[in-house]
Write a protein that binds this DNA or RNA. Sequence first.
DNA 1: CACACTTACGATATTCGTAAGGATT
DNA 2: AATCCTTACGAATATCGTAAGTGTG
Lengths: 314, 314
Amino acid sequence: MNIAPRLLQSFLALAHCRNFTEAATRMHMSQSAFSQAIARLESQVGVKLFDRSTRSVSLTPEGKLLVPMATRLERDIALMFQELHDHADRKKGKVAIAAPPGASADWLPRVMANFQRRHPGIQLQLHDTYSDRILELVRNGTVDFALNREIERPEEFDVCKLFDDPHYLVCPQDHPLAKEKSIRVAQLAGENYIHLLRGSNLWQRLYPHLSRVAIRDTGFELNNMSTAAGLIANGMGVTIVAGQSLFNYQRLGLAAVLVSDADLRNSGLYLLKRRGHSLSVAAQGLREMIEADKPVLPATQRPAARRQGRTRAG
Amino acid sequence: MNIAPRLLQSFLALAHCRNFTEAATRMHMSQSAFSQAIARLESQVGVKLFDRSTRSVSLTPEGKLLVPMATRLERDIALMFQELHDHADRKKGKVAIAAPPGASADWLPRVMANFQRRHPGIQLQLHDTYSDRILELVRNGTVDFALNREIERPEEFDVCKLFDDPHYLVCPQDHPLAKEKSIRVAQLAGENYIHLLRGSNLWQRLYPHLSRVAIRDTGFELNNMSTAAGLIANGMGVTIVAGQSLFNYQRLGLAAVLVSDADLRNSGLYLLKRRGHSLSVAAQGLREMIEADKPVLPATQRPAARRQGRTRAG
DNA sequence: CACACTTACGATATTCGTAAGGATT
DNA sequence: AATCCTTACGAATATCGTAAGTGTG
């Protein structure tokens, strides 16, 4: 039961031409090989398909029966190939990714827009959400891959660092620490601290530091960084954010001072996916574009200059 | 684009087992050949279909995409084979034949019933009609083949004689000619002649004879032989019919006398089909059964004994 | 006798199995 | 060390093309 699609094509060609020589030409083979092919087909299906006297070729009743079935089959096979090749060529496909809000606000959408322009047939989806949810989306396969900050058990995933993204203290320009090159969390003793979402990745990371320092928790728990920025600009306190989110605060002219505690200083953005599961061709394409287009954020650079990530559209 | 169905089966087997060794066993091939087959498939479709680390095998996104398409395709291929094999094995099919009323009345239905018992899946159709219509049905392919008497241009068809079926004069037992061994048409001078359908095959054949003899045409033109039989039994005239239709008259105890004019004496029943077009497997089966089961009508046999055609059911 | 399909036969390509290699647990 | 997939290589099979054969108009 192992009929080559090429044989079906030959059958249909002959059914159409009713002439071995012409059909053979159409199949790009010698007339003799074509004759053998038809004979082989007939022996495989177990019935004569053509009546041929040297001067005329016509379908037997069983041949007539096969025509519509073979036609449908040939079309389905072609469609299957088309579909796979379209995916291989990135003309079709879906990519879903997840990322924290900082990445999702500015840089990532720009990369995704570039990708969309280059591969208009691929459907993109972005989940901007918090760390634990991101991990869940990767685990259950809802997204092809994700961007995230440092996570607890990186061995569960395939992880690779995209770029460094250290944390900064955000405070008013006239704040005593604003002129420092860098600070340590310990220096925040006595400050009012404004938390963003409690339980977030950042909160989990800051907590051990802050709890050791005599900091005054303002009790705020905010969803939007623009709210935090407004509060800080009006002297209500300070906060710490990753470099990638600084733009929310610079809009209001706030100062940003590098935090030099090791884990906050060395943090960065990572790309992660399920272990042992390769990416779809489409997802791999987006991944490569993300890796090629990541913003340059050298550790020593002052935050005011950070928007110069190069754009590489094709 | 020439993917062997066997490759698709291999793909589905591996997709299901997620284990090369087991899937290879299921496909009855060595694990190595199976590995090569999968690699070949991947190169043909142009994308990796499986993620394999020595300890686990899983589908890539493109592999997942292929599963439903391959499943459908495999099923369609199997159905195609099933259909063709069912026809080759005479488990399915249609046979339409045409025959003149004489053959259709008794002998042919018996053969068809035998065929139906042996091949219950094959749909049978019988057109009982007159000669010209029979030829038309064969010509345009409405019927697979037909039974008919001598025709004008036999070279138009593939014709082969089934059996002799000479003509008989039908008259009352007390008719002067009833005791003859055989007669010639010329002896019917002065008789009242009862025609069946004018323009029929029989009429066309009798006309040259009757027109040369001083016969009184009764003017009747009948559709049913039983009517003719009634008329003859009541002394209204005589007629001539083929042996196969005699049963209509013997029921009323009428006499039948062989007509010895050459063309009426030597007539018979023929099987005919389109030239150069082979019969379907099913039709060929019926044809063979017809040829094997034809009634024995030796020329010298008296009509009263003619119902002894043997039945060959299996 | 010319045309169109089939058969014969040697060359090439594909597919398969045994055996060795490599990687992961 | 055991297990599972891949690679290497020779053997078997399938397919193809050239050329000769066959039958029909």
